[in-house]
Design a protein around this nucleic acid. Structure first.
Lengths: 235, 235
DNA sequence: ATTCTCGTTATGTGCAGACATAAAGAAAAT
DNA sequence: ATTTTCTTTATGTCTGCACATAACGAGAAT
């Protein structure tokens, strides 16, 4: 009522966040409904809706029809990490990009790969391994399996000039993806191509993608020791 | 024109995605403006706007006033990972949760910590170390520095029963956070409390949080070898 | 040629009003 | 007591319309 006009969805969001941070609305507590807030802030319900919807999407509020809106008890904050082609990752660091194909074979993938791609075993796939260089130094290894059933045109591409990473992104769209981050000691293969010792600890990013229901590719990117994946969360 | 009515923002989004996936609208190409799409789909411009706005937020489209909307050339897909308290992480795996404080001291933090918290060196902070257990087995270590200037009430809390992880989340709100993921070989401290060998590779999640302009805390969570951080991306 | 001004254009946002939909809770039927 | 049906309520969404705002580009002024 006494609140001066807050009539942009941004300012509504700011005010709601302020009240949550100042414990005016405590965790678990119910907040007024959209209509009442709109009246208080002297703005449209649509505006309040947008502000609250975004906060719900980011996990700060929990909303349910009829029940109303409450402050999340255990705010699950969402950290967003950008997944992009390795070349751009390197170029954004101001380094020059280099690429070298290690090998390219058609083979039966190991169980871990078929499992991650939600496939039965036994199907032959294209196996491509390559190294990405930053200023001439190994930056990351790419170990990729491509499903030839979904992506038959990969059989005719040699991946000598352009990495599978880029070729796929440009030529094969996907709908669904999973991503998994883990750490392991350097394998013999990683020791050789990243030029590190057997004591090195390697950060892996595994990524599987699908086009509609067809599996596209499964890739493991192994980074040079010391690599960090960074994310800045908002709100 | 000939398109049958597509009059929910979801269906507009689906249709736009279909056209992108089917290369009807190629990467880098400009797509019709909102008004024209609204006419074609026989829906309101607001509806088209919402559909396109979300696609732009997720990195599939790039929008600029006056210039219009184009399909992103290098789609930076955003993987979202949920950051929540360790207890819930363990409980969601169906394991019983245990917690043990290792030590709690007031000390001057090392450079790496003051750097991550964007602080000058020399200020004393509260240093809390603890282990989180899943079914009685060490699951993750928590190594945390709390800024006593921003969070003076932490000085009087002993963290013997409740982890700093939970206590802070319940008692000290924050506005801004950074998150960084990396892998290192197990330190002596980690070897002891996670009960692993010196060859183990540890996945670390480092997180710094701020309340307005005041630094709140900097924490490193070190996970048991083999731990994975998983994210499922949409669209 | 360079700088400035200004109209044009596409997106960004706000509003009121309407209807859709999930879900809780009351009332009725069994 | 249990199940079914309904009413009510708060959120979810669509619409048309309006105005705000960024930014490109044409044309004027220098």
């Amino acid at each position: 009522m006494s609140t001066p006009d807050i009539n942009s969805w941004q300012s509504v969001q700011d005010e709601v966040l302020r009240r949550i941070h100042n414990r005016i609305w405590k965790p678990g507590a119910q907040i007024p409904n959209e209509t009442d807030l709109a009246k208080e802030f002297n703005c449209g319900r649509t505006t309040v809706n947008r502000a609250l919807r975004e906060l719900a999407e980011s996990g700060i509020l929990e909303r349910k029809r009829k029940s109303g809106t409450r402050v999340a008890l255990h705010p699950v904050s969402r950290a967003v990490i950008a997944v992009q082609i390795v070349r751009r990752e390197i170029e954004e660091r101001g380094a020059s990009y280099g690429y070298a194909l290690i090998d390219r074979t058609v083979d039966t993938p190991p169980h871990a790969v078929t499992f991650a791609m939600e496939l039965a075993q036994g199907e032959e796939m294209l196996h491509v391994r390559a190294v990405h260089l930053a200023d001439g130094v190994p930056y990351a290894l790419e170990d990729r399996w491509i499903c030839l059933r979904t992506v038959p045109q990969a059989r005719d591409y040699d991946f000598a000039q352009k990495s599978a990473n880029e070729w796929l992104l440009e030529n094969v769209p996907y709908n669904r993806a999973t991503l998994s981050i883990l750490a392991t000691p350097a394998s013999a293969f990683e020791q050789e191509y990243l030029a590190v010792s057997d004591k090195a600890s390697i950060l892996h990013v595994e990524r599987a993608t699908w086009r509609d229901k067809g599996p596209v590719t499964f890739v493991t990117i192994s980074y040079q020791p010391g690599h960090r994946i960074i994310s800045t969360t908002t709100s």
